[in-house]
Design a protein around this nucleic acid. Structure first.
Lengths: 209, 209
DNA sequence: GGACTTTTTTGCAGTCTCTGCAAGTTTGCA
DNA sequence: TGCAAACTTGCAGAGACTGCAAAAAAGTCC
């Protein structure tokens, strides 16, 4: 029907969004998140303040890097997993693939973001779990793969756990980025997979400190 | 040294905080969170707007019911658990006890809060995980009980998982409050305990839908 | 009770985030 | 070229939140 052809408009929009995100991160890393105004961000990206708010609902969203395409893309990845993969495995693969890709495509942004999130850990909380909407999307996808009713706890819990794994991993990665973020997320997901009932053996990844 | 005697000042402060929280919740449940101003909340609690902000750093915090005493109290509960309890068990007991108590002491507030959190699920995200500070406190407590270094992933992950369990449980409870909130949190924590690798057998609590 | 210290409350001025609206510009398309 | 749809922008305004200094209240000591 509609081939996903990228029109000039689309390209411009993507560029503007990227410019705003980059500006927000660069300035926040440099001067501190609280000392940067939306006005400055918009100026650096060469658009009006009003336009900033056409792209991001809040200043927070800009540094978080909220992207409306992420949710649907991860859902697609969940369904793209092998037939015989468990719901957990499907979700795990989708999340790790998304992270790896994003880190690949925007490594510099992530390095800046690391700084900003260290300044304001509360923003980190809203990153993966950013909007209830996309979380709902993912939970529905997991539920379908698991053959569970939407009201069941498991899908929501799994998706939320993924967000939590991501959050903790970023926190740890910000503390020591000699390890790959994807690996830390993977490790965290493994702990969730096998259960938290017992303290894991001392196989600290990296063994730092 | 300093007996925990409750002076008049302390009592007034507690009352004011409670009045503000109640006002925030009542008005939000009635008119919708976005249609309530801090001015109205302060008026209903019979204090000035400026005083509102002396108690809560933001409008959000008022409906969330942020209380500076909660963090330390849960930490105390973690250490109060039986010597032979695993870190997970200690944490689990602490969380469940806190929830049970709070629900006991402020049931009406929770019924209002349920409404508000249904309107704005994003606030729910910030509830348990509200501030990075108290999360840090809890993680340190768990780490000490587990004999792990502070940098280890496990304590942070466990605490964050608790927050997640709580969050998902509230979401489900808001949807159907014929079950006790504490029980749903318990069920969620059980899933985390045994691991999310496999879809749990269909022992749906309540079996709704 | 009166004088003095410490806390808490309050008003005020001011900054910043965010929204609705209407007009101006750019892009897509026939 | 000409029209329609999508974006951008400025503007006015509501509302959240902060710093500051004065006023009020509570605790203390004589």
């Amino acid at each position: 029907m509609n081939q996903p052809v990228e029109t000039l408009r689309d390209r411009k929009k993507r560029r503007t969004r990227a410019a705003l995100e980059r500006a927000a991160l660069r300035l926040s890393a440099e001067k501190g998140y609280d000392h940067v105004t939306v006005e400055e961000i918009a100026a650096e990206a060469d658009v009006s303040v009003r336009t900033f708010f056409n792209y991001f609902a809040s200043k927070d969203e800009a540094v978080i890097g909220v992207d409306p395409e992420t949710g649907p893309r991860v859902v697609a990845r969940i369904f793209a997993a092998p037939e015989d993969a468990s719901p957990f495995e499907a979700y795990r693969q989708a999340v790790l693939a998304e992270i790896t890709d994003d880190l690949e495509n925007a490594r510099e942004l992530w390095l800046l973001r690391k700084d900003v999130l260290t300044q304001r850990p509360d923003l980190l909380v809203r990153m993966f779990t950013s909007n209830a909407e996309s979380e709902q999307l993912l939970a529905d996808a997991v539920a379908r793969r698991a053959g569970l009713p939407e009201s069941h706890l498991y899908p929501r819990l799994l998706v939320a756990a993924g967000g939590t794994a991501f959050r903790c991993a970023v926190a740890r990665w910000a503390f020591d980025d000699t390890v790959a973020l994807g690996d830390v997320v993977g490790a965290a997901l493994d702990m969730f997979a096998t259960g938290l009932a017992h303290v894991p053996p001392h196989q600290t990844e990296g063994g730092a400190s």
